[in-house]
């Protein structure tokens, strides 16, 4: 409708529905069908089922907005995550932008799968945020807390910029795990985790970051810099010994912790851990 296009966004309040989840999904779908590509949230919402974000969509959570999730699975995921027959290169979702504001809160998990150009900015989230087979991701100025792990970067993820995050986990605050899989393997993508930049953040978890790999898929080209961590800083590897090439070209510097900055449970290759050199 012309009016929707002129306004430039949809709002859940503009749609009928027996629940907030129905209204919100209609707002997302209408933003796509009218090609306005933006949904604005304001107020209190109770969501009882997963919401699917179409490709090329911005979600704006205005100041004071609260989404409380009472359903199963994640609160938000991208659409292709729900379409297992699209687990190949050409069906990648892209340009998904979630922007928060002071006082805006999402309670529930956010799960992104097979997506490119994902931005999470100024969000407060009570739940886990996870990525699988995602690339070109930027997270800045977010606060995430979870009884388990706050942030999970699993197989097939690359080219991430993570800065000024405050993350609290009941176990590790962050898990970077090339062996971890939830969805189907995406044909045409590689499963390694690489090209990650993670800086200037506060991690409340033990450890702050847990890094895991497997026999075939590893983690490389990672720059971790200036973290304040309550537990051990970074733990690399788990029980079984993997080839050192699975943890390659990793840097962890300026890790502030009263425990151990870097704990190596696996051999690594060409890694720079200056705290360990002292």
């Amino acid at each position: 409708m012309e009016i929707t296009k002129l306004v430039g966004y949809t709002r859940p309040e503009g749609f009928p529905g027996k629940s907030d989840a129905v209204k919100i999904q209609k707002a997302l779908n209408e933003a796509e069908s009218e090609d306005v590509r933006k949904v604005v949230f304001h107020g209190q919402y109770t969501v009882d089922s997963t919401l699917y974000i179409p490709t090329q969509t911005e979600l704006v959570f205005e100041a004071g907005t609260v989404l409380t999730y009472v359903g199963k699975g994640p609160l938000f995921t991208n659409r292709v995550a729900n379409e297992p027959d699209k687990a190949s290169w050409s069906f990648e979702d892209s340009l998904i932008y979630l922007k928060g504001a002071p006082g805006a809160l999402l309670t529930g998990d956010l799960s992104f799968y097979h997506a490119r150009y994902v931005v999470l900015e100024q969000l407060e989230i009570e739940g886990n945020v996870s990525f699988e087979f995602c690339r070109e991701v930027r997270m800045e100025d977010d606060v995430i807390s979870s009884p388990a792990t706050a942030l999970t970067v699993s197989r097939g993820c690359n080219n991430f910029i993570l800065q000024r995050l405050t993350l609290k986990g009941g176990e590790a605050a962050v898990r970077i795990d090339a062996s971890l899989s939830k969805g189907p393997y995406v044909t045409g993508k590689d499963a390694d985790v690489h090209e990650l930049i993670f800086k200037d953040s506060v991690l409340d978890g033990d450890p702050g970051i847990r890094m895991c790999a497997n026999e075939t898929d590893g983690i490389f080209n990672v720059q971790i810099d200036h973290l304040k961590v309550s537990g051990d800083g970074i733990v690399i590897g788990e029980g079984s010994a993997l080839p050192k090439e699975r943890f390659f070209n990793l840097t962890a510097q300026a890790i502030e912790t009263e425990k151990t900055a870097v704990v190596l449970k696996n051999e690594t290759k060409h890694c720079f851990f200056p705290e360990q050199e002292k």
């Binding site: 296009k5 090609d35 306005v36």
Partner: peptide, 11 residues
């Protein structure tokens, strides 16, 4: 500058 161009009716 919004997404919708009201002159051309295009995005």
């Amino acid at each position: 500058l919004p997404r919708y161009n009201a002159r051309t009716k295009e995005m």
